[in-house]
Design a protein around this nucleic acid. Structure first.
Lengths: 360, 360
DNA sequence: CGCTTACCGGTAAGCGCTTACAGGATTATA
DNA sequence: TATAATCCTGTAAGCGCTTACCGGTAAGCG
């Protein structure tokens, strides 16, 4: 069959030009809608382009006009150590990334993703690699120590997510404090629970630190008995949450009336552990999460949590970065509001539950 | 504070060269470990690089040596119409993408993601854009009609996922037939159910067509009463699955003993709909999925399904593409094996359930 | 100690595309 | 019909990096 002959590697703008009988400049102009090419010229170029199936080379384009139209996104991924439930811990990140992607599309940008293993030593190398291929990068939480971020920020516009603002880089995060305060108030005031614990996330996470601090402040302010400390130290993962519960129970500890988890994943694991021991949520122990990942509403019971506008978080990160890339200026620290989502794991009865009770 | 002066835009290799007192060629050689630079030269370059915080420009590099070290991945995303459960339908794609990402890292490639709206008219434009920025692209199912794929394949190496092989492009998919046969056999032979239905996915999906065909063949071969057809037409989404069940029940139809869903999402939605009507799974109706997305095991009851090696699917897609990019040759169609995962929604009792029974 | 053989490192030529600049063609004006 | 004003279009100069090629220096040998 008549394969269109392709003599030397991929086509270039020269091939199109000679096929259309015009100069490369004209081809470029038609392709980019610059200037006012004559109708006939325009048409000949377009025809040549479609006949040849020409796709302009992004690298050359980028090199020439100094814009790659690519944002890099770097995040952590679980390594070989792969707990069953861990799959889902990616959800949080994935949703944010989706937000970035959507916002990027609006500007004609594409998203270059790069995950870094948890114990990957040369995270810096990988990040630099991405930085070189993008106009700017978005770093998820805990990707790089502050100094590293600042250094890199000298070369490429950087937006960090959900951490503490770092000199040189811009930052986008959620209002952890307000969310945690609302959550604790609901537990202590609305439900009148007397004792609460904070099942912590990784200690090196600014998000976790902010939540822990807000938790303690608010709980103490309401005069509750608060449980915190090393025996309540999780790591944001379901496995971590389960381990804490198992450890406490094995040690014969009495659980508090309510457990506030650092994130939904942790709550998921903790609830599994509780279920294995026959402890009922929320009847025996109330449980709450943070993030409102999509599965949260499918847990049993549905998880009361604080919703972070994750997609918006990503979109905002891109927008901030874009403004920096195109105008040179960008907000140094933007804080997005969160929302308390009351389901059943805190002890509130859902419509469905009430209906069942009424019915029988 | 002494900000390192950055006179004109970002640094280039020239800045590094002059700072180190060597030529740009030497800088390049050191950075790429080419040739055998003298130790002193190497060291001076390295020092200049770190002092300046230099990150080489990916576009220039790509243009120069004809390799971008980027694979494009294009997939569909739900549009504005955003059903609650739909969040999770992304899981399947996300896991595959993770596989691509991991495989890509091994070769020093990064992944350029681009999602396309379901009713996006200029999908072709978007895909071309990605193609121009990558060395090759991976297309998820149902991204482009066959002709479009073939045409694009003339310009860029392409791997399609989970569809039917297309001329010019390479393809990677799972063994739908074998999985469906095993599933149906389990339902009809092991459980001795007499009637089964296939709750279909989108009709334009080759995967769905393959599953539907295998389902019918096998079910008929075992003499079961099979329910298929327009009233069983879903669309791969949870909402779609729920709508089919609701429609059937509203019409007063009697459900078959077992329902085989086109994918896990559909099963999730169908199970919700059933639960709302007080119909018990698997006691009244057995239910199965396909894919084994991570949530499948957390459903109530845990979902019996067919596991596609999703991560491996992605990794294989990359490997095939990589081989095409680097050697010019690649397998035209690779088929990966699937695995029947028996949980409880089919009527099998789990260990936990059995234990509970024994205990009480 | 002079000449060959190695080795390094610098110079310069692109990679494919955009765009300032200038020249040729076209149309308007007298 | 000559001349000026307008448009288009082509030429060529980079964008930042890699690398072939070649000259210079140091080391090896008789």
């Amino acid at each position: 069959m008549p394969e269109p002959k392709r003599p030397k590697g991929p086509l270039t703008i020269y091939d199109v030009a000679s096929r259309a009988g015009v100069s490369i400049a004209s081809v470029s102009r038609v392709l980019n809608s610059q200037g006012t090419p004559r109708a006939s010229t325009r048409e000949r170029v377009m025809r040549a382009v479609t006949e040849l199936g020409f796709v302009p080379d992004g690298a050359a384009r980028a090199l020439s006009n100094g814009l790659k139209e690519v944002v890099g996104v770097v995040f952590r991924r679980g390594d070989e150590t792969h707990f069953e439930d861990e799959d889902e811990s990616l959800l949080f990140i994935d949703v944010i990334n989706r937000g970035i992607d959507v916002a990027a599309q609006r500007r004609g940008f594409d998203v270059l993703m790069s995950s870094v293993g948890f114990n990957d030593q040369n995270a810096t190398t990988r990040i630099s690699g991405v930085a070189g291929k993008a106009d700017g990068i978005i770093l998820h939480d805990r990707m790089l120590p502050a100094a590293g971020v600042t250094r890199l920020a000298g070369m490429v516009p950087i937006v960090t997510l959900a951490g503490t603002p770092v000199r040189g880089a811009m930052n986008v995060r959620c209002d952890n404090e307000a969310g945690m305060r609302a959550l604790v108030r609901h537990l202590l005031v609305d439900h009148r629970y007397q004792s609460v614990a904070y099942l912590s996330g990784r200690t090196d996470s600014p998000d976790n630190r902010a939540r822990a601090r807000a938790f303690e402040l608010e709980a103490v302010a309401h005069g509750a008995e608060v449980h915190v400390g090393s025996s309540w130290q999780g790591n944001y993962s379901a496995a971590g949450g389960a381990k804490v519960i198992d450890g406490l129970l094995d040690a014969g500890e009495k659980l508090p009336r309510a457990i506030v988890c650092a994130n939904d994943q942790t709550a998921l694991g903790a609830m599994h552990a509780l279920a294995r021991r026959g402890i009922r949520v929320p009847h025996d122990v109330a449980m709450t999460g943070f993030d409102d990942v999509p599965v949260a509403r499918h847990l049993h019971p549905p998880l009361t949590t604080v919703r972070q506008p994750m997609q918006e978080l990503g979109a905002t990160a891109f927008d901030v970065l874009y403004s920096k890339i195109s105008t040179g200026k960008g907000d140094a620290d933007v804080v997005l509001p969160v929302q308390l989502i009351i389901r059943e794991s805190c002890g509130c009865a859902s419509r469905a539950v009430r209906a069942a009770k009424d019915g029988i």
